[in-house]
Amino acid sequence: MTPAKTAQVEKWQLRLYVNDQSPRSGIALANLKEFCETHLKGRYHIRVIDLRKHPKLAKGDQILAIPTVVRLLPKPVRVLIGNLSDTERALVGLDLRLAGKPE
């Protein structure tokens, strides 16, 4: 599959919007890191944004829920909300399965 191929080449760009005060955000970051280590080792970059510190970004990136993971690359953009505790849905939501298969 072509998206998978390109995904192999380019680095995954992920953004995690959190609220540092909320324990949910910590869980989300831990979960996300775990998925990436499993499926995308070395091919990902996660940027964590504390929305409380950067409230402007809530509008710019159209963030409603916290925590939210946005997959900027590879295209298309994907948005996943929640603390990623539902692994199955998280992997489907981010298309990590496909990306991870070749490994």
Binding site: N19, S22, R24, I27, A28, N31, L51, L64, A65, I66, P67, T68, R78, V79, L80, I81, G82, N83, L84, S85, D86, T87, R89, A90, V92, G93, L94
Partner: peptide
């Protein structure tokens, strides 16, 4: 997509 718990903060 959703996965797990979240709020609308």
């Amino acid at each position: 997509q959703e996965s797990g718990d979240y709020d609308l903060e």
